[in-house]
């Protein structure tokens, strides 16, 4: 039983390390700031999530597990806030995202506020 739990937690920790490395690799490899945010969110969700789940299995049942789950909840609730603020600040500064296809304003009238991400007319 303990061997099975150990194996599962090692697998989860290895998986978490892998996704952490992939996210950081993407952070260096991607061409511009919006695509880099997508790479960083792999680290923030999958890497952190699998590492914390693996450590939870190692910690057993107690206060340490509860603290690890608080840490996971902190990442789940604050990660998107930071990413959204960063994306909006980029648009406000006038950084144009590199786009292969632009579907903004195809069906709806254009808004003139640059901060909602729409193309100003």
């Amino acid at each position: 039983m303990t061997l099975a739990v150990d194996l599962a937690s090692w697998g989860l920790i290895l998986l978490g390390s892998f996704f952490t490395l992939v996210g950081a690799f993407g952070l260096v490899r991607m061409p511009e700031v919006f695509t880099r945010m997508h790479a960083a969110s792999v680290t923030d969700t999958l890497g952190v999530g699998f590492l914390i789940l693996g450590m939870t299995l190692q910690a057993g049942f107690g206060l340490v597990t509860l603290k690890l789950l608080f840490l996971l909840a902190l990442f789940v609730f604050t990660g998107p806030v930071v990413t959204h603020a960063l994306a909006q600040a980029c648009l406000h500064e006038g950084i144009k995202p590199l786009l292969a296809e632009d579907r903004r304003g195809m069906t709806r009238p254009r808004s003139t506020d640059p901060d909602d991400g729409r193309q100003p007319s």
Binding site: T20, G23, A24, L27, V33, R36, M37, A40, T43, D44, V48, F75, V82, L86, A89, C90, E93, I95
Partner: peptide
């Protein structure tokens, strides 16, 4: 903003 993003990632890691 690239630096802010990298700084946030450094904090997470």
């Amino acid at each position: 903003f690239d630096r802010v993003l990298a700084g946030n990632s450094v904090g997470t890691l």
